[in-house]
């Protein structure tokens, strides 16, 4: 795998919050290829909040819907901590229904590896 050291993501510590493992791994791999460091994966609101407290990442990719639960509490905590995040979602209408999530930069599923990197460079650097 080619590691891109010229991307602004290079060296950045990221957390991937996503409840579908394979999608999480896809995001993880894409970001790693872009030079970022993925310090953890979380698939539920509880685990995500815990991970964020422990790791205090530079930026986060956040699935809008975690196993039926809207990830609003995670978004709010990230706002409090001043940590940037990109909302990744397949459930557009539901995500848009919440003002906090609706405000944030958004990428809809399905996306390509290039797409996630591009969005991450744009919003998480």
């Amino acid at each position: 795998m080619m590691v891109n050291s010229s991307s602004c993501l290079s060296g950045r510590r990221l957390v991937v919050v996503e409840d579908e493992t394979l999608i999480a791994m896809l995001i993880e791999d894409a970001l790693i290829d872009a030079g970022a460091e993925v310090v953890g994966l979380a698939g539920t609101v509880a685990r995500a909040l815990d991970l964020i407290e422990r790791e205090r990442p530079d930026a986060v990719t956040l699935d809008g819907n975690l196993d039926g639960e809207l990830s609003v509490p995670v978004a709010k905590r990230l706002d409090e901590l001043g940590i940037r995040y990109l909302v990744v979602t397949g459930y557009v209408e539901m995500t848009l229904s919440d003002p906090t999530l609706a405000r944030a930069p958004r990428l809809t599923k399905p996306f390509t590896a290039g797409g996630i990197v591009h969005a991450a460079e744009r919003h998480l650097c």
Partner: peptide, 8 residues
């Protein structure tokens, strides 16, 4: 959408 993403 999820399944498609998974397949992807």
């Amino acid at each position: 959408k999820n399944v498609l993403a998974v397949v992807q």
